[in-house]
Simulated assay, not measured.
Amino acid sequence: MRFWRIGVVLALGLVVLTSPARTESSGGVRVLPLGDSITDGFTEPGGYRTGLWQRLSGHDVDFVGSASSGPAGLGDHDHEGHPGWRIDQLDAGIVTWIRLARPRTVLLHAGTNDLNQNHDVAAAPARLGALVDKIRSLAPLAEVFVAQITPIPDDAVLEGRVRAFNAALPAVVAQRGPRTHLVDMHSGFSPADLEDGVHPTSAGYATMADRWAAALESVPDSLTPLLAPPVDAPAVLANPRSLRCLDFGRVADCDGRPSQTWVRTAAGELRASDGRCLDASAAAVRACDGSPGQRFSFSPDGSVVAGSGGCLDAVSRFAGCRGTGDQRWSVR
């Protein structure tokens, strides 16, 4: 018992900074594994990510994140798993990570360290909800999967905290709208599925991979590229080259502010949060008038083309279409 408690302190109680790594990209649907050492794979290199990658082999998927780890059998090593980190620490990094990763889908397994460190345990579900809110503001169209965390059966006190935390999550998820989904990562695990009482064994990670895969495949949009904003759905338009977002007729650092949220109408307008329309003719936001400069189409190459001519440009706002990186936009 004493041995595994030391392991928990080392793996879960310390903040271990992960240096930025060279990312791998397949050009597929961008999936962000987000969490702590269980996402990183403390006792089993790659953790659940190895099995999930293999189970999603029939889909074109690109794992994204600033960290990189795992075995050769894991085809894409990128992730955002930070050993020892609590929810508040993940929250502190999420703006930068979403800006860099531009995820279509987020897999969030977090809270174990809050409970293990006895860090304001009662408020942990609310902190997780606030983290999801921030993700939603930065990527309104992302499909966000929130896990009820894996058990800690060897410690009755910690397992009691886990059960109370998990019991609060259905309400937390339900309040975040139809693109936020709950995933059960707690039931059906036995002590034999946990290497040190906390971190899964290879069999435990295989179970996690199965459950993530089933959840993703139950929401087809989570594995489908998003080339244009759905009509009447809030969206953020981000330029991958500059790592900046469209903001009230200008381009600014992506930070989730309301002025970076746009709604595409059936008429092809891009309406700002104040109800005005993006206008290519003025390179600004103006009262909506149905003119060609306020109607936009989205090309498969990422270009946003105005009905009056020209393309949305991260440098000059609008310019002649030339297919450069400054004119390629991702929707999230």
Rank of each mutant, 00 (worst) to 15 (best):
M1A: 13
R2C: 08
V9I: 13
L12I: 08
S19M: 13
S19K: 12
R22F: 06
E24K: 02
R30Y: 00
L32Q: 04
I38R: 07
T39L: 09
F42P: 03
G46A: 03
L56T: 04
G58I: 08
V61G: 00
D62G: 04
G65Y: 08
S66Y: 09
S66I: 14
P71L: 06
G75R: 10
E80M: 00
E80H: 11
G81A: 08
R86N: 10
D88Q: 13
D88V: 14
Q89I: 11
L90F: 09
L90S: 02
I98T: 12
A101D: 12
L108V: 12
G111R: 03
N116Q: 12
H119P: 00
A124S: 14
A126H: 14
L128A: 06
L128I: 05
G129T: 09
I135G: 07
I135R: 02
A139S: 15
E143G: 08
V144S: 03
A147G: 13
I149R: 06
T150K: 02
P151E: 01
P153H: 02
P153L: 03
P153A: 04
G160K: 02
R161K: 15
A168C: 07
L169A: 01
A174I: 08
R176H: 11
R179Q: 10
M185F: 02
H186N: 12
S187P: 04
G188R: 03
F189V: 10
F189M: 06
S190P: 04
P200G: 05
T201P: 06
T201Q: 02
Y205H: 12
M208R: 01
W212F: 02
L216A: 01
L237H: 07
A238N: 05
A238Q: 13
R241V: 15
R244Y: 00
R244T: 15
G249Q: 10
G249L: 07
R250D: 07
G256Y: 11
G256V: 08
R257E: 10
R257L: 09
S259A: 15
Q260K: 04
R264T: 00
E269Y: 09
A272T: 11
S273K: 07
G275Q: 09
R276C: 00
V285T: 06
A287T: 15
R295A: 14
D301N: 11
V305N: 13
L312V: 00
A314D: 07
A314C: 05
S316P: 00
F318S: 04
F318T: 08
G323T: 10
T324L: 11
T324Y: 03
R328H: 10
R332P: 04
